[in-house]
């Protein structure tokens, strides 16, 4: 259980880190860079969802 709480904290920190980067630097990204970022965010959320589904959440 403690491990999952730590994972939860890790996930929250990662998402807030991405939020900070998005606020500061997304305006400087090129169009292809923005598209790849969109795919990668979908990937992060999708894989996390699959992971939590697998462990029975």
């Amino acid at each position: 259980m403690r491990t999952y709480i730590l994972y939860g904290f890790g996930v929250l920190l990662c998402i807030s880190g991405i939020g900070y980067l998005a606020v500061e630097y997304v305006k400087y990204l090129s169009e292809p860079g923005r598209l790849v970022c969109l795919f990668l965010i979908v990937g992060v959320l999708g894989f996390l969802g699959k992971y939590f589904e697998k462990i029975g959440w």
């Binding site: 980067l21 997304v26 400087y28 860079g33 990668l40 965010i41 990937g43 992971y51």
Partner: peptide, 18 residues
């Protein structure tokens, strides 16, 4: 896989944005 995508995201922000 989620971690790999996260690291790639950071790399793109650094290389393309910063």
């Amino acid at each position: 896989l989620a971690l790999a995508c996260f690291l790639a995201l950071i790399a793109i922000f650094f290389v393309d944005g910063y």
